[in-house]
């Protein structure tokens, strides 16, 4: 079985979270998933462009989706919550509103493209559950993550708003737990499981967001987690790269390693931390992982 997806990496994977690009590709290869990167994709707007121009925000994402449609695949896959939300928002708006769709297509026509609405936008997390299947994933596990206590930090945009995302109940999603458990890891319960990382306002609301980061690290730490796992590179960046700044606002030690979902999967598939670029995080995650796992 080979699953084929059009792949939308998003800017973060190209620059600040290249380790997610590396680990996603490694894991896809190991699982036999084919990812065809869109040629000429643009930034999704990251929840900012609609503040300037809503129609433009829809148009650039319609273009991204149209690029996927021209590949003849049925799904466009991302590994970023916010990319997924932006793309799905544009799609839903056009699919619900024929007039808007036509108007967007007038612009796309000048760019030699057409948005038809034939491609679905998904996230790796969902694709694993929906298309790949947990049973198949389990069969690929060579190093069960036994004893590793993970804190699943969903990030808001993988579940909300539910009319756009809709994969699972936004008040109590379970997809991350299902994947982590299939890999043999133990999921800890913690208050901030569904919290916001604050990334999208880290500039204008720096003070508030740093406080949130501290709380988001402390909560799983107190629950005994070895690391946080997140399906979103923006959450990862906020919680990891800004952690030293957040620490300054707290007396207690907030240290908490933060890894990407594909990195967790990769470990269970027997891929080494270096190959998954886990060594690239600001808060070193490797010692915590080594304490619990026999790493490749």
């Amino acid at each position: 079985m080979t699953l084929t997806y059009a792949f939308f990496p998003g800017c973060t994977l190209e620059s600040a979270a290249e380790e997610l690009m590396i680990s996603t590709k490694k894991v896809a290869e190991a699982l036999g998933i084919e990812l065809i990167e869109l040629n000429g994709w643009t930034c999704c707007g990251a929840s900012h462009i609609q503040d300037i121009d809503n129609f433009l925000s829809t148009s650039i994402n319609a273009r991204n989706i149209a690029l996927a449609e021209s590949l003849g695949v049925s799904k466009l896959l991302t590994v970023c919550n916010t990319c997924t939300l932006m793309l799905r928002t544009a799609k839903l708006k056009m699919d619900k509103n024929e007039r808007l769709k036509e108007q967007v297509n007038v612009g796309l026509d000048r760019a030699g493209l057409q948005y038809k609405g034939t491609v679905e936008v998904t996230h790796l997390l969902w694709a694993l559950l929906e298309d790949y299947g947990l049973e198949n994933l389990k069969k690929k596990v060579t190093v069960p993550l036994k004893g590793l206590k993970v804190a699943n930090f969903y990030g808001c945009h993988i579940v909300m708003p539910p009319d756009v995302m809709g994969f699972e109940n936004h008040r109590n999603p379970q997809s991350m737990e299902m994947v982590a458990e299939a890999l043999g890891a133990e999921c800890v319960e913690f208050d901030q499981r569904l919290a916001c990382c604050g990334f999208h306002a880290v500039f204008p609301a720096q003070k508030e967001v740093m406080t949130m980061t501290g709380i988001n690290c402390l909560s799983p730490k107190e629950a005994g987690a070895d690391c946080i796992v997140t399906p979103c590179p923006l959450c990862q960046m906020q919680l990891d790269a800004y952690q030293p700044d957040a620490q300054k606002r707290f007396d207690q030690d907030i240290t908490m390693p933060i890894i990407h979902l594909p990195q967790l999967i990769g470990l269970a598939l027997g891929i080494s931390p270096e190959e998954l670029a886990i060594n690239r995080h600001v808060v070193d995650a490797i010692p915590a992982l080594q304490r619990k796992l026999q790493l490749a």
Binding site: C43, A46, I49, D51, I52, I60, F203
Partner: peptide, 19 residues
């Protein structure tokens, strides 16, 4: 900051396509 941040995205996509 908010407006400038939003425009940074808006302009980068226009100029280069990416952030």
């Amino acid at each position: 900051q908010g407006a400038k941040h939003a425009y940074a995205f808006h302009d980068d996509v226009k100029n280069k396509g990416r952030l």
